[in-house]
């Protein structure tokens, strides 16, 4: 085929998103270093971050239960090819650790960053603790990452 023409462009997409009540309360609590899960009245499952309803039981959840900022590593990876940060569009410096963490007092798991990026030092079942930002802002990244407890 002869010459191929292509158009190149960058689309700037503005977005606006309303949190809803459960996430608003969760974020407000974070600025006091407090974490609470919502417990389903049907199955008893404690959801963290809190969801407005339990998808399995199709019930709205209102009962709040306390959660600690220490928990157990359920799954982990060390990322070498970072994805773009959805907030900034910039890649996170690699390598970095990520984990699924079940905090004491919750039944679901959080995905979050890990301070550790050495595969030899990461193990399913390890105990981990949240490392908080010094000046809390009431957002999910008030927890900077989780560190593995020896």
């Amino acid at each position: 085929m002869s010459e191929r023409i292509a158009v190149k462009h960058t689309m700037d997409l503005a977005w606006r998103y309303a949190s809803g009540e459960a996430m608003e309360r969760f974020c407000a609590d974070l600025s006091d270093r407090r974490i609470e899960a919502l417990r389903c009245g049907g199955c008893g499952r404690r959801y963290l971050p809190p969801r407005p309803f339990c998808g399995n039981c199709r019930l709205r959840m209102t009962e709040r239960v306390p959660v600690r900022d220490v928990g157990t590593l359920v799954a982990w990876t060390v990322v070498h090819t970072p994805i773009l940060d959805g907030r900034t569009g910039e890649p996170r410096p690699a390598p970095y650790g990520m984990g699924l963490i079940r905090l004491d007092g919750a039944d679901t798991t959080l995905n979050h960053y890990l301070a550790e990026a050495d595969p030899a030092r990461l193990r399913v079942g390890s105990r981990v603790r949240a490392v908080w930002r010094p000046a809390l802002r009431g957002a999910m990244d008030d927890i900077l990452h989780f560190e593995v407890l020896s």
């Binding site: 002869s2 292509a6 190149k8 960058t10 997409l13 977005w15």
Partner: peptide
């Protein structure tokens, strides 16, 4: 609580057979 932002998405669109020829001519 409302959160707002913007994200930049680079893209390309290949004109393909007929439109490439149209644009070249």
């Amino acid at each position: 609580m409302i959160r707002e932002g913007s994200i930049h998405i680079p893209f390309t669109y290949a004109a393909g057979r007929a439109a490439s020829r149209f644009l070249v001519v």
